[in-house]
């Protein structure tokens, strides 16, 4: 226990140290003229630019635009992924019918179909949401499917011994038993949905973090570009960590103590 706290503190100290070192080094290589600030900007300049974008409201606008597409895409992916996953987990024929398409989706990089979505939906939010939806769908579907399908056989047998009907087994055994696996799928889906939104925004949008990264890149304004880049990375970490926390909570009963 003591050891544990000690180790965690050590991890925290060293981790912070490394982040600070990176920032300091970043500033120093520019200050000493080793790297041209045009290429990598500097922490100081990025901070200045952060304040500017914060004050003129553009940062918030872009974050909200990205989050809006993200929420739509994730919501759709959750509804479709969990819905289809439950059907496939329960009915073998549904699983078999969908399997070839899911396999295709696994191996095909969704963005290769981006121009197709542009042809169908035009530039803007619908295409961004569609791409991010497809990005997020696979892990949510796959985890739901495996959670429902691999319902614990001992639990199922116990339920049947008390006269459970298929309906009971689905809602009282299979579904609650799948919650941790489904949440794990959600965690993966969250990361992918964000990637999908930002990538699609890089290609064409009129607001959003990805859009502003691409926009400043075209202007060759590294200082300005760094702000949305850091924002995306932070957003990814925060969203995924939040889901990891939920995952740990829902997974609590999985811990088995052998006493």
């Amino acid at each position: 226990m003591m050891m544990d706290i000690f180790m965690r503190r050590q991890a925290l100290i060293l981790g912070t140290l490394s982040l600070v070192t990176i920032v300091v080094l970043w500033q120093l290589v520019v200050d000493f003229g080793i790297v041209n600030p045009f290429f990598i900007s500097t922490p100081g300049a990025v901070w200045q630019e952060f304040l500017v974008q914060l004050n003129d409201g553009s940062l918030l606008t872009n974050i909200l635009a990205t989050l809006y597409s993200f929420a739509l895409a994730l919501g759709l992916a959750v509804a479709v992924g969990i819905g289809l996953g439950m059907l496939s987990g329960w009915f073998q024929d549904v699983e078999a019918a969908l399997e070839p398409f899911i396999w295709f989706k696994y191996s095909a990089p969704t963005v290769a179909f981006y121009p197709l979505f542009i042809a169908w939906l035009g530039y803007g939010t619908p295409t961004i949401v569609a791409i991010a939806f497809l990005f997020a769908l696979t892990p949510i579907y796959a985890n739901t499917l495996s959670g429902i399908k691999n319902v614990d056989r001992d639990l199922k047998r116990a339920a049947i011994s008390f006269g459970a009907r298929p309906y009971d087994i689905f809602f009282r055994v299979a579904l609650p038993g799948s919650v941790p696996v489904i949440v794990a799928g959600l965690r993966l889906g969250v990361g992918r949905a964000l990637t999908g939104v930002v990538v699609a925004e890089l290609f064409g949008a009129n607001a959003g973090l990805g859009y502003s990264i691409a926009y400043y890149a075209q202007m060759l304004q590294t200082n300005r570009m760094m702000v949305p880049i850091v924002a995306v990375i932070l957003l990814g970490v925060i969203l995924t960590q939040a889901l990891s926390y939920v995952e740990k909570k829902t997974d609590a009963w999985r811990v088995t103590h052998d006493n």
């Binding site: 339920a159 008390f162 006269g163």
Partner: peptide, 23 residues
């Protein structure tokens, strides 16, 4: 059954209720 057949996400009370609910 052996202990693997208790629902891990239900409390003791929830588990004992389970058979009654199913019936």
């Amino acid at each position: 059954f052996q202990d693997a057949s208790l629902l891990p996400w239900r409390t003791v009370l929830g588990n004992v209720r389970f058979g009654l609910e199913m019936q």
